[in-house]
């Protein structure tokens, strides 16, 4: 281990910047995943495939269609909302009956995920797509000269967009009437129906929001890595699940905190541990394991009652 690394403040701040932007992406992705779990008690295993399709949607609009960045972001989120709506109508709602086994809807979402990935492979092939430089200038900014801290435009966009999405989702869920109805459905579908709430309508809104978040995560990851392939969901799928468990299943604030924890742990493992990038997953998941030993319900987990 290179001990001088620990005394280098620029290196430390650099890793903070990289870790936070990585964590922000995990957080945005995991918020949508955990939202659906909180409301329906099911794992939507097609969330990663939705994420991947949205990266392509943004790519098509910006790289092929030549439209500017805001249009690409909007297109990705819209595509995510649309795919999630289809998932709800075709994969989840038909299986949602009183007392139906939650595992059946999980399997149905695995099937949907396989279909979405094969469709992407058929449509786009295995070849990697990249954005032209006109979409987002790849030249980073340097704080404190060329030997200082480097931050790319994609990272600035990620940090800004994720703060907007995290605060926005929080306000939506806590403050708006629809947000309260979503929490009511999460707490008890029967109670919600007795209040006159159209439960299926609320579930549709939940899927639209979760899908839009998968879309935002997809296009932001695509802009950061500039590496768009049908298999790109694999990278984030297990990490998203880990983040959701780490934060407490169904807990939105937990997903944000968990996302940042995983992003920072991974980045610092790569930076400071010998052979870091080879063992980063092993170390990251070892740390998650230790956190869960101490807090089995996740960092923010307080059990079912406080979900969503």
């Amino acid at each position: 281990m290179d001990l001088s690394l620990f005394a280098n403040p620029v290196f430390l701040v650099q890793n903070l910047v990289d870790g936070l932007s990585r964590g922000a992406l995990y957080g945005v992705y995991a918020m949508g995943f955990t939202l659906i779990f909180g409301v329906l008690d099911i794992l939507n295993l097609a969330h990663a495939a939705t994420f991947m399709w949205c990266a392509f949607a943004g790519y098509l609009v910006m790289a092929v269609g030549g439209l500017p960045l805001p249009a690409g972001l909007a297109a990705a989120m819209l595509a995510g909302a649309l795919i999630a709506l289809l998932l709800e109508l075709l994969a989840f709602r038909p299986l949602r009956r009183e007392g139906a086994d939650k595992l059946s809807s999980m399997i149905s979402s695995i099937g949907a995920s396989l279909i979405l990935v094969s469709l992407a492979e058929a449509a786009f092939g295995a070849q990697t797509r990249r954005f032209p430089n006109s979409v987002l200038d790849p030249k980073p900014f340097y704080i404190g000269g060329f030997s200082g801290v480097r931050i790319s435009r994609a990272q600035i966009l990620i940090l800004a967009a994720s703060v907007v999405l995290m605060v926005g989702l929080g306000l939506f869920i806590r403050r708006t009437k629809m947000g309260k109805a979503i929490r009511a459905v999460a707490a008890s579908q029967k109670a919600a129906r007795l209040l006159g709430i159209d439960v299926n309508g609320v579930i549709v809104v939940t899927f639209l929001v979760a899908g839009a978040l998968a879309g935002a995560a997809g296009i932001l990851v695509a802009l950061l890595t500039n590496n768009i392939v049908p298999g790109m969901g694999n990278q984030i799928e297990l990490r998203g699940l880990a983040v959701v468990i780490l934060g407490g299943m169904g807990n939105i604030e937990g997903a944000v905190v968990g996302g940042f924890v995983l992003g920072l742990v991974e980045t610092f493992t790569i930076a400071y541990a010998p052979g870091g990038s080879d063992i980063k997953d092993a170390i990251a998941f070892l740390i998650l394991f230790i956190i869960l030993l101490v807090k089995p319900n996740g960092i923010m987990g307080r059990g079912k009652a406080d979900r969503a």
Binding site: K180, R183, A186, A187, A191, L195
Partner: peptide, 17 residues
Amino acid sequence: AILSPLTVAENLELGAW
């Protein structure tokens, strides 16, 4: 059928959904 994770005011507000 109280919505336990919501506040008293939120429960009442949803009563008027």
